[in-house]
Computed example of a mutant assay.
Amino acid sequence: MVNTMQFGIFTVGDVTTDPTTGRTPSERERIKAMVAIALKAEEVGLDVFATGEHHNPPFVPSSPTTMLGYIAARTERLILSTATTLITTNDPVKIAEDFAMLQHLADGRVDLMLGRGNTGPVYPWFGKDIRQGIPLAIENYALLHELWRKDVVDWEGRFRTPLQSFTSTPRPLDGVAPFVWHGSIRSPEIAEQAAYYGDGFFANNIFWPKEHFIRLIELYRERFAHYGHGTPEQAVVGLGGQVFMRKNSQDAVREFRPYFDNAPVYGHGPSLEEFTDQTPLTVGSPQEVIDKTLTFRESFGDYQRQLFLMDHAGLPLSTVLEQLDILGEEVVPVLRKEFASGRPSQVPDGPTHAALVARRDAGDGTESPVPAGSPA
């Protein structure tokens, strides 16, 4: 397939009371629901399922690779990713091992999104200092990057014990590391880091106005080119989004409003109408979702991956599965066609393991060392 974008869903794994029934799912129910949602994503023809990582209530996905390994055994095509892998509080050695293991189990259908998370107390829980968030992200990824590319690593840094003649096992599948996205809501330092390594940059694109993310993505594209990885248009960009759909837009608004008004992340703040006007949230008909999502290219340029958040705020599983049917049957096929139309040939496809192996074997430098210097 030529010039393909990837479409999928991401979940934060919140356990939230349904405001319309007063019922709160158990942790087991929520975990099983996330699996059902992933299986449905493949069934309806989506490309990617991504789970967040959290270590505090009301969230359940504390072990993303465990969940993704289970889903890998029950799917065939779906790319399995994370919506956040905490590069600041996880040991880079353990990340290297866990995701390489997952690569082998899933036959390469794996990538990951690194981030600092949105829960401040997680830092001391894992023996880290939140005031060192950016330096931790930069140093820990430098080590992770090396662990996947060198069979024997000697390492000394500020934040962990030194490594001497260390080999991370298993080695990455086919000798190619999983593709890495660096996710950020607010930090230009992370856009710079993604550009430095020639990795992907994922702009959450949910809670803030688009102008904020336009600045971050433009910075990433400019610095991607500066570091010699290609033109700004060849940088690899992913975007988040939020949708709730019904055939009739008034029905969608009426049904979603109580969930929006009581959602832990944005309830009791701006109105639903204000939020949909100022952010990428779309509540309406499938055509309205198509129309608004297509505007993302006008704002951010051609990009590689579009993920939607659909299972939060207490929405029951049955409703989420209905939403996925609509997304897969009525929305994504149109988006695929429209985004492919007029897409320049030099714009890269969404990343896959097979493509990374092919590019490595072609000797185009995809897996070559990064430039000397510091990303910060």
Rank of each mutant, 00 (worst) to 15 (best):
residue 161 T to F: 13
residue 165 S to V: 02
residue 184 S to Q: 01
residue 345 S to C: 00
residue 11 T to E: 15
residue 13 G to Y: 10
residue 107 D to I: 00
residue 76 E to T: 14
residue 210 K to E: 13
residue 134 I to M: 07
residue 336 R to Q: 12
residue 230 G to N: 07
residue 191 A to K: 05
residue 346 Q to N: 14
residue 44 V to I: 10
residue 307 L to E: 03
residue 158 R to Y: 04
residue 138 I to D: 08
residue 146 E to C: 03
residue 8 G to Q: 08
residue 220 Y to A: 09
residue 296 F to H: 12
residue 42 E to M: 05
residue 331 V to E: 10
residue 68 L to P: 00
residue 351 P to M: 10
residue 257 R to Y: 08
residue 77 R to Q: 13
residue 154 D to E: 11
residue 23 R to D: 13
residue 345 S to Y: 07
residue 69 G to H: 09
residue 225 A to I: 00
residue 207 F to S: 10
residue 317 L to V: 09
residue 163 L to Y: 05
residue 117 G to S: 07
residue 242 Q to W: 07
residue 18 D to G: 07
residue 250 Q to T: 12
residue 297 R to Q: 14
residue 253 V to E: 11
residue 89 T to Q: 02
residue 132 Q to N: 14
residue 140 N to C: 06
residue 342 G to M: 06
residue 175 G to W: 09
residue 250 Q to I: 02
residue 277 D to M: 11
residue 299 S to W: 13
residue 179 F to N: 04
residue 73 A to Y: 05
residue 318 S to R: 15
residue 47 D to H: 12
residue 266 Y to C: 04
residue 86 L to G: 00
residue 373 G to H: 00
residue 136 L to Y: 11
residue 357 V to F: 06
residue 184 S to H: 01
residue 55 H to Q: 04
residue 324 L to D: 09
residue 272 L to P: 02
residue 304 Q to I: 05
residue 328 G to A: 07
residue 257 R to K: 15
residue 210 K to Q: 12
residue 359 R to M: 13
residue 33 A to Q: 06
residue 95 I to T: 01
residue 90 N to H: 15
residue 83 A to Y: 05
residue 252 A to M: 01
residue 207 F to Y: 15
residue 245 M to Q: 05
residue 351 P to C: 08
residue 346 Q to R: 15
residue 268 H to G: 12
residue 3 N to Q: 15
residue 135 P to T: 03
residue 183 G to E: 07
residue 300 F to L: 02
residue 84 T to Y: 08
residue 70 Y to W: 15
residue 355 A to G: 10
residue 160 R to M: 11
residue 80 L to W: 03
residue 206 I to V: 13
residue 46 L to H: 05
residue 363 G to A: 06
residue 79 I to T: 14
residue 13 G to R: 09
residue 49 F to I: 07
residue 5 M to T: 14
residue 309 L to S: 12
residue 362 A to Y: 11
residue 69 G to D: 08
residue 262 N to E: 11
residue 356 L to A: 14
residue 142 A to M: 10
residue 328 G to F: 08
residue 265 V to P: 01
residue 301 G to C: 02
residue 53 E to H: 07
residue 338 E to H: 10
residue 206 I to N: 11
residue 130 I to C: 05
residue 306 Q to V: 03
residue 7 F to D: 08
residue 104 H to D: 04
residue 307 L to D: 01
residue 331 V to K: 12
residue 56 N to C: 10
residue 363 G to N: 10
residue 298 E to Q: 15
residue 256 F to T: 01
residue 145 H to P: 05
residue 341 S to K: 15
residue 230 G to H: 08
residue 229 H to K: 03
residue 117 G to E: 09
residue 122 V to G: 00
residue 134 I to D: 04
residue 361 D to A: 08
residue 50 A to G: 14
residue 362 A to Q: 14
residue 348 P to E: 09
residue 324 L to R: 09
residue 286 P to Y: 03
residue 58 P to G: 04
residue 269 G to C: 05
residue 153 V to P: 05
residue 44 V to S: 03
residue 111 D to F: 09
residue 256 F to L: 06
residue 231 T to H: 08
residue 91 D to Y: 07
residue 136 L to R: 03
residue 25 P to K: 11
residue 31 I to T: 14
residue 280 P to W: 06
residue 266 Y to V: 12
residue 9 I to Y: 00
residue 306 Q to M: 14
residue 240 G to I: 02
residue 359 R to F: 02
residue 98 D to Q: 11
residue 2 V to C: 10
residue 113 M to I: 06
residue 235 A to V: 02
residue 137 A to R: 06
residue 353 H to I: 00
residue 130 I to L: 13
residue 366 T to K: 10
residue 118 N to K: 11
residue 208 W to I: 12
